[in-house]
Amino acid sequence: MELSIRYLQKSKGCVMNFRTLCNVPSRLNSTNKVLKICDFEENARSFRSISTAEKIARCKLASLYRLLYISGWAEDVLNHVTLRLPSKTAISCNNDNQIDETFLINKFGLQYWEVTSSNLVEATLSDDAEIVSPGSNCGPVGLNKAGVVLHTALHRAREDVECIVHFHQTDVQALSALKCGLLKTSLESCILGGVSRHSFRGITIHQEERKQLRQSLGKTNKVMMLDNHGAVVCGSSVEETWQLTTLLVHAAKSQLTALQAVGGDESKLVLIEEETAQRTYETAWSGNLHGRDLTDTVSHSGEKGKSIAGEGIENEALTQKFGVRLFNSEIRRLDFMGYNTGLT
């Protein structure tokens, strides 16, 4: 494989992305530069005083951006992934002493592969998303207005919405244009549970659309199709959001393939009965995909080169929440590829 890659690197054109498409570890090429996800050491002065919880949050979110990029689900400098920051001492951001929660978002203009733990922007969840921390390597720091309107509206709509992915993955966007919406044609579609819909009103830059977005999402659903505009996935953690995102992509691909096979005739599809779909959903969320496993351990020694995720926990059995196992496996893959997530 290494010899093949070295040969291909001499070629031009479509071979340029061979390594990324095949998920080949970058360490096979010692001259290949890798932009580390966890780059606090390079920006130690700026991040000396932040909490361990915030460091973990930044590393997880930056890792999620990188996963979306290498999966081919990013769209240039568009779309956003956001994360509500852990509770901290209240910050007075305005002259009138209004106190706002804060969240992390990417700088407008960076591609997903460029997002790191230190260059994420911290902003308030207010309508104007006032910048609290511009992140590292900042010239002019801009936030995309459409991203601010969409993400702040949904974060503020429900306390359980901690992490949000908005994306235009091709199959998901195609599905968002179908009147039938997401059908129960696969296991993945069942695990997603209820799916909301929001009609397309153009680019989401208008403040009045916030209320409509909140109403469309509803009180419990975690996935919302944006008609003709992709989808948003709203999870209670980065891990849950990534699992739901992968499920949505698989469900969309499966449905579109099935529809293509029957010439678009929905009547020829075998749909999963509602009772079975509900039972599948309850099984998945009650333990089949998370649950307690005595083989799960966590080691946070705090030694150099180890995870920054904590200290003092050794060989403790964990109750894994939805999406944790999948996300942890992805973190191991990113670290194997040389991206240094700071989470292992």
Rank of each mutant, 00 (worst) to 15 (best):
V324H: 04
N23L: 14
V141P: 07
L28D: 03
P25T: 10
G323C: 09
H168A: 05
T344N: 11
T276S: 08
Q169G: 04
R210T: 05
G142I: 06
T344L: 10
Q207V: 05
V165M: 09
N228H: 15
L8N: 10
L187S: 11
G142D: 13
E122T: 03
G109W: 07
K33V: 11
I313D: 10
G312N: 14
Y339F: 15
S92H: 06
I131T: 11
S186R: 05
A317E: 09
N106C: 11
K36F: 07
V238R: 10
V165Y: 03
C234R: 04
S63I: 12
S11A: 12
D160S: 06
Y69P: 04
H168N: 10
N288R: 15
E122P: 00
T319Y: 11
V233C: 06
G323I: 05
Y112T: 02
V270W: 12
I203L: 12
T204E: 11
N17I: 00
D76Y: 09
A177L: 10
H155K: 07
L247D: 12
C14T: 05
L61V: 07
L247F: 15
H300L: 13
V232W: 04
E101H: 13
L28K: 01
V161W: 13
V298D: 10
F200D: 12
E316Y: 09
N17T: 00
A146G: 15
L78C: 05
S216M: 09
K33G: 05
K222W: 10
T295I: 08
R332Y: 12
S136G: 03
L67G: 04
R325E: 10
G323K: 04
A157I: 06
K36Y: 11
L125D: 06
N29Y: 07
H80E: 12
L154T: 01
L247Y: 14
S133I: 00
A53Y: 08
G142P: 01
A258P: 00
T245C: 15
I105G: 03
I164L: 08
E101S: 13
T52G: 07
L8C: 09
G135K: 01
E314W: 05
Q255D: 11
C59P: 03
V195T: 06
L150C: 06
C93N: 12
H290V: 01
H168V: 04
S186Y: 02
K304G: 06
L83W: 01
E316D: 09
T20V: 05
F103N: 01
N29Q: 13
V172M: 01
N23D: 13
E159W: 09
I205S: 09
G194L: 07
A53H: 09
G338Y: 10
K211D: 09
Q9I: 00
H198E: 14
I313A: 14
G194A: 11
L21S: 08
N144Q: 02
L182A: 02
P134E: 08
K211G: 06
D160K: 00
T276P: 00
S237N: 06
L8G: 05
P140H: 15
Q278K: 15
I131R: 15
H166L: 10
G342R: 01
A309R: 04
N43T: 07
L334Q: 09
I191D: 14
Y281T: 03
N340G: 02
H206S: 02
S26L: 13
R325Y: 13
D39N: 15
A123D: 01
L61A: 01
L28Q: 01
H198G: 07
E101T: 08
C59F: 03
H290Q: 15
